[in-house]
Nucleic acid binder design. Structure first.
Lengths: 156, 156
DNA sequence: CCAAAATTGATAATGATTATTAATTCTAAT
DNA sequence: ATTAGAATTAATAATCATTATCAATTTTGG
């Protein structure tokens, strides 16, 4: 079963690689459909499965009911924001710190790998919060910087 | 909406607290049905939801397609075994190590919480592996110490 | 170009969970 | 204890995410 190079597969991979937002299958479907209006959701699922099975993308098992996909296969870590529900990548220093600390943990527990999801306010929400001191307990409106169909806060 | 004390809810909580196996809703349903044959799966789901919403139990978001529930609400950590698929708790020293290391991580990243699932061979499988040196690459048969309907290895 | 293999779109099926609803059970106040 | 009102139940339907099926189309390597 050699993997052939179809237009659909190419576009799915291209669109996913444009993003750093870890889309769900149906979010990616909406994007891909703008270029290939005839494509079906099943094709998107099928290709995401194949692409992750061949390590060209990552399939993420995060909290929430839907799987998410990541075009960035380099080692990195994810943080879900409790304000907007968005999943973002840890950057630079934070990233290195997680790696150091978790490798230490694997060594000490004798485990071989781990799945980690951090929960913390993302940079976008942090900015919004500090600029509205008069109402600090207000949760930021997810719609303001995320285009989810639901409330943006996925329940686990 | 005051929570009333029904037989169903009591039995569900009792049975869950007997276990340290982090059952799925349907696994718990099978157990509870031995005491209350008329109970419906919906009732089990409804009560697990209520009990976790009131912090009497934990709802776990681990890898795999089904949610799991935990009657032990004290802080502890979970490891899924790649051999048998079973989810077990980290004990004693390991436990303290994770807590220390992850608290440090939260402090350094400014995050507020995390979801962590470790992946490592569980004590039962470790014993089995070391006692069968002649075939070390063999994966232990999940059926041998897990009563799952599927193969016991949940795919993510 | 051609045959074999892989893939697609459409759609049905599945599995886990949540919602609906009429009937039953709890509760707390008499 | 009785009873009205609230909460819960069992049964079942509905939903949501994902996977499977399959005839038709596309891709591939010779």
């Amino acid at each position: 079963m050699k993997m052939s190079n179809t237009q659909q597969r190419r576009v799915i991979l291209e669109e996913l690689r444009k993003l750093d937002t870890h889309p769900t299958a149906d979010e990616l479907y909406d994007l891909v459909r703008q270029r290939l209006p005839q494509i079906s959701l099943g094709t998107v699922y099928r290709n995401l499965e194949l692409l992750s099975a061949t390590s060209q993308i990552l399939k993420l098992q995060l909290t929430g009911t839907q799987k998410r996909f990541d075009g960035n296969t380099a080692l990195h870590y994810h943080r879900r924001c409790p304000c907007c529900g968005r999943v973002s990548d840890l950057k630079g220093e934070e990233m290195a710190e997680v790696e150091r600390v978790l490798n230490e943990l694997l060594r000490k527990t004798g485990c071989r790998s781990y799945t980690l999801e951090l929960c913390g306010v993302c940079p976008a929400c942090r900015k919004q919060q500090s600029s509205s001191r008069e109402n600090p307990e207000n949760i930021n409106n997810p719609k303001s910087h995320q285009e989810n169909k639901n409330d943006g806060i996925e329940r686990q």
